[in-house]
Design a protein around this nucleic acid. Structure first.
Lengths: 341, 341
DNA sequence: TTGTAAGCGTTATCAT
DNA sequence: ATGATAACGCTTACAA
């Protein structure tokens, strides 16, 4: 592999000059510029990124930490970020935090150690304090799906509480009174927010909050499956269920169908996230749109602005979820799930 | 940020000694070892990964290139790889190739420039020659979902042709004779393989290959949607359709339902990949299982073996797809899609 | 077992 | 506009 030295020799100039033509900033005479460029071509020269990083403590790449590599939500988020960054000529280093503190910290340190120019994090387990501290370090950080007041400028987040509220509200507006809820893992902030919104909607309409109808899932199909089995086994009537995300809803729907429950006639369902699949479920899922691709782009844009001085970008820190009405809800009739079946 | 120098001073030893305790290989007296460890702790020392890479041309991380960050298939693949590698203490740098040659090459060079110790690639656009050439370079390469004879030891692939064959065969066995096919992008090798298998199954049973019933999709829901619309508009009868992957099937199913076509009574459908969602579609999708998680793990294991001398690993290069029967197919009756509807 | 010192391939500060 | 040369933080012969 040719080095900058080889190029300098072939071009008959100094190392410094070669470096200058690579980093377009400094002025170099057009003539020597060409000589150098030619030499580079002839040698098939490619700068050693590691050496560049060491010398300049920049890397032209931003580190991304996401909870899981799997899942439509994360996939969409990564796509949004990557597309925007790549368009700006930046590269992306992605790693996973697995929703647990040790892995998240490990991942963050890995990214920093690779001298990423900036970080975009979707972290769940790590504490606010840690992040506040982190944001004081030299490497710019953008948080996605998390809002911390002290560093709110660096947060791109969704109003989860409002989403939970709107989801439940959609059901209440259709006359539902017994509304079950399959939550995400309760230690997660977004799961808490959504559930809080659910409770607010209930309270606002003077509906009781029945803790027996609230069960914790895992944001995955399997959680929806288990939770719905549990709800049905309880034989406690409900006419609608809001699921903390679409995967959960999908699992729940599967179990309902296996139990011969007609949707939406006998049971209305609303999901959360509006992943691509939501529109292909049967019944097509009414859900809260989580503009995760746009938010990913926004996070990237914020990074570009903070770190690479890209200008002209308007930053939107808080996004609003929006109800997407499809086929999975309908007005309540006398259609409580027959718990004696 | 503390450097190795700070540690050496505090511990009262030389740089080399500190380096030695970090790289457990060389022998260091237990006493000095402790002194160094203490100093590291006291300073909160973290080695500079970039400097390490530059000096040693190793990075303890492997580069992964995948076509898209989005999609259940890629997500599963990434998870499989990452889990295995992380368990071995290796990190992962992920980037996307977007199924086009320029981006794929760009991504590969990016990874090499980061001095990844090895590469695991899911590439589609780049030529065999390029990859053969690449595999002669110092950095070990493992290819996933691609088989190139000259470097078959480094390939972890699925027998796509057999999968296509088996999928169609399942339908033929149920008496179907008019079988439509929604392909993946025809320039992709796996799409070609699957379609070839389809044709072989047809030929074997003396069924005509009707090119009017073969339409090209994009491996996504949208492609399934468009393709099925097209097939239905043709008013050319068929009693079954095999879709080149599950997303495609999902889109196709949506359109069928919108057109009042009963599945599987009026139309049998089989997918390919067996992504998680397949079991939650309605009807539950019969599909070819693509053991992508295992294959990802295997790719990781092969990398570990080649690059880090991990031993005791048995490598399986070729995987077999397997039919997973669910609810989306049934024996043919007189149930051709009513094209006069 | 431990220390010395020469790289690794760039960038960046001074001179010129 | 160009050239020397000292970092950057670590690894690794080679000595001791």
């Amino acid at each position: 592999m040719a080095t900058i030295y080889d190029v300098s020799v072939l071009a008959g100039v100094s190392l410094a000059t070669v470096s200058r033509v690579m980093n377009k900033n400094a002025r170099v005479s057009e003539k020597t510029r060409q000589k150098v460029l030619d030499a580079m071509n002839e040698l098939g020269y490619r700068p050693n990124a590691v050496a560049q990083s060491l010398a300049s403590s920049r890397s032209n790449s931003v580190g991304i930490l996401v909870s899981e590599l799997q899942g439509q939500f994360y996939g969409a988020m990564l796509s949004g970020i990557e597309a925007e960054l790549r368009a700006a000529g930046k590269h992306v280093i992605i790693t996973a935090g697995h929703s647990n503190e040790a892995d998240e910290i490990d991942g963050i340190e890995f990214l920093i150690d690779r001298s990423c120019d900036a970080l975009i994090l979707h972290v769940e387990a790590v504490s606010d304090d840690y992040l506040i501290q982190l944001s004081k370090s030299p490497v710019p950080v953008v948080l996605i799906n998390r809002k911390i007041d002290e560093i709110s400028d660096n947060c791109i987040s969704l109003d989860n509480e409002k989403g939970g509220y709107l989801a439940t509200r959609a059901l209440i507006d259709q006359g539902h009174k017994k509304i079950a809820y399959i939550s995400g893992p309760k230690w997660k902030a977004d799961a808490q927010g959504r559930l809080a919104g659910h409770r607010r909607a209930l309270a606002e309409s003077n509906l009781d909050y029945d803790s027996e109808l609230v069960v914790e899932g895992n944001y995955q199909e399997s959680g929806g499956v288990d939770a719905m089995k549990f709800l049905l086994a309880q034989k406690r009537p409900f006419t609608a269920v809001v699921c903390a995300n679409d995967e959960t809803a999908s699992g729940a729907i599967t179990i309902c169908r296996e139990n011969g429950i007609k949707m939406p006639e006998e049971l209305s369902i609303v999901g959360f996230d509006n992943i691509i699949f939501a529109g292909h479920l049967y019944p097509k899922l009414t859900t809260m749109d989580y503009p995760i691709v746009e938010m990913g782009q926004m996070a990237a844009r914020l990074t570009l602005k903070n770190t690479y001085q890209t200008k002209g970008a308007t930053i939107q820190n808080l996004f609003e979820p929006q109800l997407v009405v499809r086929d999975s809800i309908q007005p309540v009739l006398k259609n409580a799930v027959d718990t004696s079946a």
